[in-house]
Design a protein around this nucleic acid. Structure first.
Lengths: 337, 337
DNA sequence: AGAAGAAATGCAATCGGTTTCATTTTAAAG
DNA sequence: CTTTAAAATGAAACCGATTGCATTTCTTCT
């Protein structure tokens, strides 16, 4: 069998508990003993069993990552790899590993979280996006399990979260179009079951209101977070309206929106201007290059991991949320009228 | 404290071992007892502790994913999220979770693997790319630990791997350019410490040879797998040569190559034709849309996970490797001369 | 030299399960 | 109504660590 702490103990002529303390570099063990034990570990090629250690110490040094919906779907949108990139940087720095649950739908997602939490497999959890109907958030809060949500939850009481100022960001995008002389501005977002969609819709409405432009329900559509989703939503709008500009809350969707506009015989940006969200790498290379709101996806990852780990280390952290700034990246998908 | 198997046992008036058997749905337990135990579990809100279970059973239902170099870097190239997407589909189907180690360099990578393997944290490992100088592969093989490599290892003896026919793929790309009348064809790849770069270089040479075109060392460059890397490599070539076409073994690098060509006053594709590799989403939208070799990245993920899990389930699998087919996607970055 | 306190180490319980083997219960057979 | 085998359950060891508390050893002081 494998070499265990006991084998090392025997070889070094000490008790297993002593070996354990040597591993932890406990100051109550004398220099000499430590050296003897280290030598024994070296000679036997000992390596601690992380599972056993976790069981005894109740610490896993692992962060759980929960993706929205199916893991498969999530990986299709560049947003998630990018936020994971941020998370991984911090996780690495702080010596945490990442456990990805692979769920297929909302029910499995719940199951996955329960498995992580009750199964004691992780020290904390990052939810990669917050849904309005999320049962996970209240559940985790009630369990008093450390977690951080990317995206402000509907009910943020007692939960730690990291997000952009989505209302402000959406106002920024809409105002940009208004300043360029647009008044018939459509708004396309992902499902309204995501808080982020709701917030951005609010920002859009606010911008209109502040500029005395009446809100028209017919100019608003939702669909899934994909190129096709954007295409379908835009098609529906173009069936009934003639917007001169559109705010799309996701760059991937924006590509679909552009495609729909072109299929309907419009030119972008000459006939219809477009502002996207997220500033994914593709956006700079799109045709036309997409004007978009850069939400600092990478930082969203960084901050959420930092917040979670801070919470893990000291029971109480001064802030319960972090707002990551956004900025508008001007490219070629908008035109003044 | 938490509800354990013992609490359930007490409540159901059975021994802990019986409860354990009920969880495993062992047929040697009577229907009535099972029902009594289930009821007790339900009433107490029992959930098995995965860590304890792993410790005893030596099974984790987790797959380890090892990214090349820094995890951060890996997430920047769309290749990796896409292969992970494939892996996650299979993992989900087979009820495995994914453990991502977060390493920063080659040394830490080794450390991470040792931690996973010796720490007994995973049942098997997928290496997301194989380096020529990889110590990991021989080490894992010697440990007799189940693992699969994406990318054919230099020494494939006794290791399971999934890859494209990279030599063939590279021949395909090069021949395509040759058929379009090009003879001064440059070749840009990532570092030659990756087997994939080596193989593709071989394919390139082979294609030249078969068409009686002399190989010129000056037309070949390597750099890191990034846009900048491609830019630098192309710049170096353009300092000394005047190729009419170039094969670039990574789409992200190809964008840099295009940028370099344009900076040097060439037009793409009119002056210089480009063929990329990987067919990442961005490629279709690039300017010009990139002609590229589609290596079925998603399938690479699917197949590697399937191969690993097959190996986990039955000690011996009939094949030790899988070749995923490639195809050339013709777009607008090449022109005949 | 003996007592007291500090330093170093060991003992044994514990974490929460699984699994082998023994024991009890039940059913079938003689 | 035994005998015997099969079925169901329990007892206890084990997986590989950690940790509270007890014990031994070493200093230091009187």
């Amino acid at each position: 069998m494998n070499v265990t702490i006991k084998d090392v103990a025997k070889r070094a002529n000490v008790a297993p508990s002593t070996v354990s303390r040597v591993i932890a570099d406990n100051p109550r063990i004398s220099k000499e003993t430590k050296e003897r034990v280290w030598k024994a570990m070296e000679e036997l090629g000992y390596y601690p069993n992380a599972i056993a250690r976790s069981l005894a110490s109740k610490v896993t040094n692992t962060l759980g990552l929960i993706m929205p919906r199916s893991t498969e779907e999530a990986f299709s949108n560049p947003f998630f790899p990018e936020v994971m990139r941020g998370i991984s940087v911090v996780a690495h720095r702080e010596k945490y590993d990442l456990l990805l649950s692979t769920s297929g739908n909302q029910e499995e997602e719940k199951e996955a979280v329960i498995n992580m939490v009750k199964g004691k497999r992780v020290d904390g959890i990052i939810l990669l996006s917050s849904r309005t109907t999320d049962e996970l958030i209240p559940w985790l809060r009630d369990e008093k399990f450390p977690f951080v949500v990317i995206g402000k939850p509907l009910d943020a009481k007692g939960v730690y979260w990291v997000d952009n100022d989505n209302i402000g960001a959406s106002k920024l995008a809409t105002n940009y179009l208004i300043k360029h002389g647009h008044r018939e501005i459509a708004f396309i977002s992902g499902s309204l079951e995501y808080v982020v969609s709701l917030d951005r819709l609010d920002g859009y409405k606010l911008a209109l209101e502040e500029n005395g432009i009446p809100f028209k329900r017919e100019l608003v559509e939702q669909d899934e977070f994909s190129e096709d989703g954007g295409y379908r939503a835009m098609m529906r709008i173009l069936e009934r309206e003639k917007p001169t500009a559109v705010v799309v809350t996701d760059d991937v969707m924006a590509f679909g929106v552009i495609r729909a506009a072109i299929d309907k015989g419009y030119r972008v940006p000459e006939d219809i201007s477009i502002v996207g969200f997220n500033n994914i790498p593709l956006s700079a290379f799109a045709n036309p290059p997409l004007t978009t709101i850069d939400i600092s996806t990478f930082d969203l990852g960084i901050k959420s991991a930092e917040l979670l780990i801070a919470r893990l280390k000291q029971k109480d952290v001064d802030t319960d949320h972090i707002i990551v700034p956004v900025k508008l990246v001007e490219r070629k998908s908008c035109v003044a009228r």
